[in-house]
Design a protein around this nucleic acid. Structure first.
Length: 838
RNA sequence: GCCGGGGUGGCGAAACUGGCAGACGCAGGGGACUUAAAAUCCCCAGGGUUCACACCCGUGCGGGUUCGAAUCCCGCCCCCGGCACCA
């Protein structure tokens, strides 16, 4: 039920009226022609929602409102603003919900999209409904598949067998980015490692560019840092440790082999390791391979084989959470093999242990227990030698090690390199080993290739045909899309293949190259592929013969401002950057970075706690909008706190913005009725107006919405102060200032003020006169020894002597100056006067 | 552990470049209007001492710089986020 007050402002009818007009007048929509010829274009993008069955979440509305305020502000300042919205409708999330409900996602998704569309219209966003996307629509995913084919052709998509993250609950593999602390990001199930042949995008080829470009894009600092951490560049070297052939004693005993040239085989295997601390190589007293390392079998001595294999089996059973616990007691097993330390020439034993990860570096390490805490713990448990090779300021070569010393220092126990500072030592040692082909400098990234295969139903089929003769062949572009068939039995299973693999009549096909019998790829692609390029598609949705209209793309992209949640800092935002770079390199795009400016928004919590269904504190937006109107809801959300930081939603708080809009309505209507525009503004109110315009104009572009709103409230309070009667000149600019936040009411009041056109096409952002924005008089604080003892009200720019005289005349000031010596007087013009005494 | 961000009334918060701490709003108290209530409007409101004028204390804690510190410096504590057996 709508809240009615006697001032005649009825949000429900005002909002319905203007939403109909915007639609009828196509206020926010573009034709392709308009997009091609737009002057001063501004692409205002927000992260498109996943259309859940629950409907729009307040978090969505918060984000979209903040972005819409930005778009509307840009429009009022004269930009041509394109503000699209769409639906990220494919993916495990939708599919899981469909499974739970026992409804086919093909039926469920359109219902959800329809509901979202209704809600999005209701909040009054400036969306161009003629340019929307739905990632589950064949007209869209046809081009998602096209993107895949382009990457395949460019050699950036490859099928390889590798250990991948398998979620036993979602029954699919996941990208590294979708595993949070060893848990599936969707269902929090511990993720297992499996070896399955999967499609990967070679995002690691772009690691350095993705990192370098972070310096030239204007993003929220925290988001930049998150990407930097995720890419995880480390500089170091690959060092090679030749494996020694087994000696006779090895078959039974434990003695290390003698280093004897005649024992060394012709082509001994070599263990390569990555290290960021080549300076510590003299302290490498043993080596460790990941249990899954491919050379384990080859080097293990017969005497150790059984125990090594048992350890491998145990390690394989551990899920990622159990394995990747840093505080877990170190376990391991000796292989019985020995390697030659390339620096010391000593034989050192080779172990396997699950604290070494196959995915990082070479899957093998040189263990330096003296200077790496993990190696230290391992060495202590298994009685391996610990040697100091770096000495800090208060240490020397013989200082005992109670724990690993990871600090800076000079090299010790390192033969000819002794005394070198560790950094220099690292360089010198690598150079020395390089000459003997035992090392090369290397940069390593934590970033992995992007695994995009999903053994699920609800996604775009990967457009590949497997042919026994030709191998994987991309589906010819003319045959796209590969339509996802309607399947009633879409439940995933343990098999490691998609439900599509049950549809023989679907996957059986012929090879596009040799026409022999062949088989379609039955996996679908990751949802994040759908969303990695959607912003490229929006302005070109009128084209059904190409993914992008080149002319429109040139004019509108890259995106001018992207607003979204931080939860996508390393997922969507990284993938979208990668796909954009790849398409740029193939010549499809003239820019490398899709989002030169990105701003994160904060999170809405309620009564100090995160909203969750289990806590029952989720805000359902529809009833609130019904009761107070979209304008009030928008204004309240933006008023909660700094947009970048979110805010604490309290139900009663909405009264403030609600009352403000009512008073605004009342004030403007009163002014319109009594003043035909001939009445002059009150000079004091006018000064305040210019100050307000100044503040709002400075704060809106920086998304500092809550303080801008506070300024407008303050101004309206002074317009109404003491029950005074407002005039048009005092309120008309305020209507424009408030328009980005409360677009419906602003339109209504603009019309009441006699303007026939929409405020967003007819009005322009008010300017301010700096002279008027400056106060006529200022209040100067008077301090004695830094303590406030009074204030004086003087005209702007009053000189020190005059202020001093006025200040001394105040009894409370003079009292504190009596009987003490005046040492100096500090004067800050228009601000403060401080008597320093004593 | 490393890298970010933060800690200000009962609550959300504000404070330009070091210059009146708490704007704006919620909740609260008092008053006007009303038969009454709701709505609306006006006033009060960091804590303490005081009839009052006024004074003292106060921006996580402890020091420092300065005429003057929420703001700068040093050392801690706590909260949030990213990364994490990453070699």
């Amino acid at each position: 039920m709508e809240q009615e007050r006697e001032d005649g402002y009825s949000p429900g009818s005002v909002e319905a009226k203007w939403q109909e007009r915007w639609d009828a007048r196509r206020t926010n929509r573009f034709t392709s022609e308009a997009l091609r010829s737009a002057e001063n274009p501004y692409y205002n993008l927000m992260m498109f929602p996943y259309p859940s069955a629950e409907g729009l979440h307040v978090g969505n509305i918060y984000a979209f409102t903040g972005a819409d305020v930005h778009g509307r502000y840009q429009r009022l300042t004269g930009r041509t603003v394109f503000e699209p919205i769409g639906f990220d409708a494919f993916g495990i999330h939708s599919e899981n919900f469909a499974l739970k409900q026992g409804v086919n996602p093909m039926d469920l998704t359109p219902r959800n999209v329809a509901n979202f569309t209704r809600q999005l219209r209701r909040i009054g966003g400036m969306f161009d409904w003629d340019h929307t996307v739905n990632t589950s629509d064949p007209a869209y995913y046809r081009w998602t598949q096209w993107v895949f084919v382009q990457l395949f052709r460019a050699g950036l998509a490859e099928r390889k067998e590798a250990p991948v993250n398998w979620c036993p609950s979602c029954m699919t593999v996941l990208a590294n980015e979708q595993v949070i602390a060893g848990l599936c990001e969707r269902c929090d199930t511990p993720v297992e490692q499996r070896r399955i042949a999967q499609w990967f995008f070679r995002i690691t080829d772009y690691a350095q560019r993705l990192l370098d470009n972070l310096k030239i894009i204007d993003w929220s600092e925290t988001t930049l840092k998150a990407q930097e951490n995720w890419i995880g560049r480390s500089e170091g070297a690959i060092l090679h440790f030749p494996v020694l052939p087994h000696t006779r004693e090895d078959r039974g005993g434990h003695a290390p082999p003698a280093v004897d040239s005649k024992d060394v085989g012709e082509q001994p295997p070599v263990l390569s390791v990555f290290t960021t601390r080549p300076d510590t190589v003299f302290g490498a007293t043993y080596m460790v391979l990941a249990p899954e390392h491919p050379l384990v079998d080859a080097i293990t001595t017969p005497a150790h084989r059984a125990r090594v294999q048992a350890y491998q089996r145990t390690a394989a059973k551990l899920d990622l959470v159990a394995r990747q616990k840093a505080d877990k007691t170190k376990t391991g097993e000796s292989t019985g093999a020995y390697c030659l330390n390339p620096a010391t020439g000593e034989p050192i034993p080779v172990w396997i242990a699950d604290y070494v990860l196959l995915e990082y570096g070479t899957g093998a390490i040189m263990a330096v227990p003296g200077h790496d805490q993990r190696d230290f713990e391992f060495a202590r448990i298994f009685g391996l030698p610990i040697r100091r090779v770096v000495a800090g300021p208060d240490q020397n070569a013989d200082t005992a090690l109670e724990e690993a010393y990871a600090g800076e220092g000079a090299l010790v126990n390192s033969e000819r390199f002794n005394g070198l500072p560790w950094r220099e030592g690292a360089r010198a040692i690598v150079e020395w080993l390089e000459q003997r082909e035992l090392a090369e400098a290397q940069v390593n990234y934590r970033l992995h290739d992007w695994c995009i295969s999903r053994q699920r139903y609800w996604g775009p089929p990967i457009p590949i045909i497997h042919c026994d003769a030709c191998g994987p062949v991309p589906v010819p572009e003319a045959d796209l899309p590969v339509v996802l068939p309607r399947v009633e039995d879409f439940k995933p299973d343990e098999s490691g293949v998609s439900p599509l693999a049950r549809l023989k009549e679907w996957y059986r096909t012929t090879c596009p190259r040799c026409s022999r019998e062949a088989r379609r790829e039955t996996d679908v692609s990751d949802t994040f592929l759908d969303s990695s390029w959607y912003f490229l598609r929006y302005p070109s949705t009128d084209r059904d013969d190409a993914p992008l209209d080149p002319e429109i793309t040139r004019r509108w992209l890259p995106v001018d401002c992207y607003i979204g949640g931080e939860e996508h800092a390393v997922l969507h935002l990284l993938y979208a950057r990668f796909i954009t770079m790849a398409l740029h390199d193939m010549g499809y795009l003239g820019f490398q970075e899709p989002f030169p400016r990105f701003r994160k928004h904060g999170l809405i919590i309620r009564d100090g706690a995160k909203m969750s269904k289990s806590k029952g504190n989720v805000i359902v937006p529809d009833p609130i909008i019904e009761e107070y109107g979209a304008d009030t809801f928008r204004l309240y959300l933006m008023f909660l706190g700094p947009f970048a930081e979110g805010g604490d939603y309290r139900d009663e708080g909405i009264q403030g913005p609600f009352g403000f809009l009512h008073r605004l309505h009342d004030t403007v209507v009163t002014a319109a009725a009594r003043d035909d525009g001939s009445l002059p503004p009150d000079p004091e109110v006018e000064r305040k107006l210019h100050k307000t315009i100044k503040q709002v104009s400075e704060q809106l572009p920086n998304l500092q919405y809550h303080t801008a709103i506070a300024a407008m409230m303050e101004y309206l309070n002074s317009v109404r102060a003491g029950g005074r009667k407002p005039v048009r000149a005092e309120v008309e600019p305020l209507v424009v200032l408030v328009a980005p936040f409360a677009p419906h009411l602003a339109e209504e009041l603009w019309e009441r003020l006699g303007h026939p056109a929409s405020i967003f096409t007819g009005a322009s952002w008010p300017g301010f006169d700096p002279a008027k924005a400056a106060a006529e008089t200022v209040r100067i604080a008077v301090q004695v020894n830094g303590k406030l003892r009074g204030t004086v009200e003087v005209p702007l720019d009053t000189s020190q002597p005059q202020v001093e005289t006025l200040a001394r005349a105040q009894e409370n000031v003079s009292r504190h100056l009596e009987g003490v010596g005046l040492r100096r007087v500090v004067f800050v013009p228009n601000r403060l006067l401080n008597f320093v005494v004593g």
